[in-house]
Write a protein that binds this DNA or RNA. Structure first.
Lengths: 146, 146
DNA sequence: TATTGTTATACTCTATAACTATA
DNA sequence: TATAGTTATAGAGTATAACAATA
C-alpha cells in the first residue's frame, strides 16, 4: 500500500479535521442562529437535559475542562435562566445543576435544529458519508477517552 | 438497516466530533507544549511555510475567517518574529506575509511534533483507524467547501 | 488535610463596526 | 465607488492561582 502521493501526514490530517470542524460550526451559527448560548454552553445544557442533575465536578470531568471553566459555563446557563443550582443534601460542598423548563425547551429546539441542518448537509453528499462520520466519531471518542 | 439502538442522531454525531476534537487538542497542548502560539496561529504559519507569501485576503479566504480576525492572527506572528509584512508592488493596498527563518524553524518543529504525537495515538488503536480519519477528513473538507 | 466550588485574571480566537489608503 | 487592510471593542471558551466552605 504505497500511496504516498495522496496520503496526508498525521499532522495534516489533524489540522484538516480541526479546521473544517470549526468552519462548519461557524457556518451553522451564521445560517441558523440558535439562541444566545455558545456551543460549549449548549452542550452542557444538553447533557443536563438528557442525563439529569449533575455536580460541577461530574460535568467538568465529563467534558474534560477545568472546574473553573465549567463554573463559568454553568454561570452562563443560570444567568440565562436555563439551569439552576441546588445544594446536595448528602454533601454540602456539592452543588447540583438542573435544567429549568426554559432550559428543556431550548435544549429540545437546539437539538432539532442541529439535526435538521446536519441531515441537510449530509443529504447533499454520498450515501455512505454518514457512516464515515459515525465511525470517525466513535474513533475520536476512543482516542479522547484513552 | 434498522439499527436505531446504536445510531446517533446527526446532532449527537456533530457534538461528539466537535467535543472530542477539542479534547484531543487540549490534551496535545498539555502533553507536548509546542511554543507560544495558539493552534489557529500556528496553522497560518504552516500555510505560509508550505505555500509561500500570501496576502491577508488570501489567508482569510482560505481559512474562512474575517479579514479582521486574520489581521490579528498575523499580528501575533509578526510580533513573535515568525512572519513579516511586505508591501505588494503591484497593488499598494495589498500586504504580503512571509515566514522568517525563525518561523520556518517553528513550523518544521511543530509539524514534526504533531506528527509524532498523532502517530503515537493512532499506533495504540486498530490498523484501519487511520483510514477512517483520512476519509472523515476528506469528507469534512468537502462539506466545509460546499 | 483533602475536596468542592467560586472568583479574579489573562490569553486565544472569533466577530462587527468604523476607519485609512489605494484602485 | 470598491477593495485591502487595520484598529477598537466585545464575547465565548479556556486556563492558572488564590480563596472559602465543607468533609
Amino acid at each position: 500500500m504505497d500511496d504516498d502521493a495522496t496520503a496526508p501526514t498525521a499532522a495534516e490530517l489533524g489540522a484538516q479535521i480541526r479546521l473544517t470542524v470549526g468552519q462548519l460550526q461557524r457556518r451553522f451559527r451564521s445560517e441558523r442562529p440558535d439562541g444566545d448560548l455558545g456551543d460549549a454552553t449548549l452542550e452542557v445544557l444538553t447533557r443536563l437535559f438528557k442525563d439529569g442533575p449533575r455536580s460541577l465536578t461530574a460535568l467538568s470531568d465529563h467534558f474534560r475542562v477545568s472546574p473553573a471553566s465549567m463554573s463559568q459555563t454553568v454561570n452562563r446557563l443560570t444567568t440565562g435562566g436555563y439551569a439552576v443550582r441546588a445544594p446536595d443534601p448528602d454533601d454540602r460542598r456539592r452543588v447540583l445543576f438542573s435544567t429549568t423548563p426554559a432550559g428543556d425547551r431550548l435544549a429540545g429546539a437546539a437539538r432539532a435544529q442541529r439535526n435538521a441542518w446536519l441531515d441537510e448537509q449530509l443529504a447533499a453528499l454520498g450515501p455512505d458519508d454518514r457512516s464515515v462520520l459515525e465511525r470517525a466519531a466513535a474513533l475520536l471518542g476512543r482516542m479522547a477517552a484513552s
